[in-house]
Amino acid sequence: MDRAEVGALVQSAADGDAAAWKSLVDGLGPLVWSVARSHGLSDADAHEVYQTAWFRFAQHLGRIREPEKTGSWLASTARHECLKLLRASKRWTPTDDPQLLDRPSDDRTPEESVLDSEEAAAQTERVRMLWQEFESLGERCRQLLRVLISSPPPSYQEVSAALGIAVGSIGPMRQRCLRRLRARLEARGTTS
């Protein structure tokens, strides 16, 4: 989302415009969700991170110092909650097994079920394969790409806030990760 647009929407929402708030939820919600997903949390924890970020934003509405940077504010808030939950789960369940933490969720979304019933079987297969290869990338690449592919595309500032990495390192990392993904797809003989 464009910064100026975000700034204006935050201002309107603070003045009581519910439609502006809804636009913010639709424009920045996928970014917040991607931050929770990229940290390998359980579904329940990811839901709580998403909620906490939005509740806090509502609470601070009208007090945000730089409204145009709200995307980064939300991403950063979500990230800190993720790190806190990871720390908590580590304390309570003494598993440090990265395999376990990295395991993709077994839950099938309604969208996946719909996908099953769609006629475009080849397309479906392509999407599934792409996602499968994406999920088997290394943790750093998966984390970075998951945030980058939220929709609408986030700015590098927002990605930086979401993952705690320098803005300057995002471009090169992005290229490397996408190259790696392409190589995996080529190995399966499925480049588009």
Binding site: F134, S150, R182
Partner: peptide
């Protein structure tokens, strides 16, 4: 094609891992 692949992945995310 880096950007193309990213865009394709973005669409996959919208289908397979949207905000509930």
């Amino acid at each position: 094609d880096c950007g193309l692949l990213e865009e394709e992945l973005r669409q996959a995310a919208a289908i397979l891992d949207p905000v509930p």
